[in-house]
Design a protein around this nucleic acid. Sequence first.
DNA 1: TAGGCCATCTGGTCCT
DNA 2: AGGACCAGATGGCCTA
Length: 317
Amino acid sequence: MLTLPFDEPPSNQTGSPFRTGWAANQLVRSVKPEPGRAPEDTFECRRQNGERNDREEEEEEDEEEEEEEKEQGGGQRRRGSYTKKASQARLERVRLRRIEANARERNRMHSLNNALDRLRKVVPCHSRKQKLSKIETLRLARNYIWALSEILNTGKRPDLLTFVQTLCKGLSQPTTSLVASCLQLNPRSFILEPGGESFPLYPAYHHHHHGAEAVGCSSADSGRPLGSFCGPYESLYDSPSPDGSSPLDAGTLNPAVNFDGIFSLKREEPVDYRSCHYGPRYCSVSQGSSADLGQYDVRLRGQFYQAQEELSKPFTY
DNA sequence: TAGGCCATCTGGTCCT
DNA sequence: AGGACCAGATGGCCTA
């Protein structure tokens, strides 16, 4: 399922929260429930069980200490109160450590989310309005890498349909639809059944949008079954699917410098869109379709530079 | 309302 | 000892 983007990732982990007294704030928050959060979700309340465990442990320790004192013939009251205070301090330390650990964990997850956001931006279909879920982002990225590596390995251009099928392998239907919309394909034409076979075939493209432009191995307006297209994973790809073994698994993929096809990892000559296999409309941002394509980025060709630049950035958290 | 996704807390484990 | 990493639990939000 696609999820709506949150306003702004809690990014810029410029500093650990507890360097700015965040932990202390949490101590306050632990007493006063955070608005919008159920009371039982507060640190204090949610800790009830764990806290009790900690306290039980502390009390057990205290008992042990007292027993030790008795054994040693001590057991004076002053010393007892002293250990009480000491255990209180220890308890505070334990609580503080927990709060700090929580903050670190939160930070860690934020870093992970930031990385995922960056991944979302370099994945073929990037929507500002509807963002891919984490799992779908990872799946799409994997498929994308797989597809690119196959292109580099075989040196063949995939037809659009095959390419999109590869991208959408294993994705949820909403994500598949999104990718299809990005590439102006009819999702029904290539959505794979669980077994990996295509659904019964329909005219593949939105004729109303850019006309019946021939794409791939077939003419779009012929109504020819998609089976007559370059079959998925057949003509182009040697490996059966992204789910099977891939060159990435084998570690045989060399970093490609120039592939004069759909994707340009590095290009020395000016782009000639007449040679673009998918036509110029797939080489730039789409706009104005029934699926409100204006909100999407399709990262092919020229946009790939941007993607690469994005990838080249050092990871900053 | 159920299900998906997410953020957060938490305790355990491993590593330095 | 303390931090990083991980997975489970929990509750909130959103959508179909």
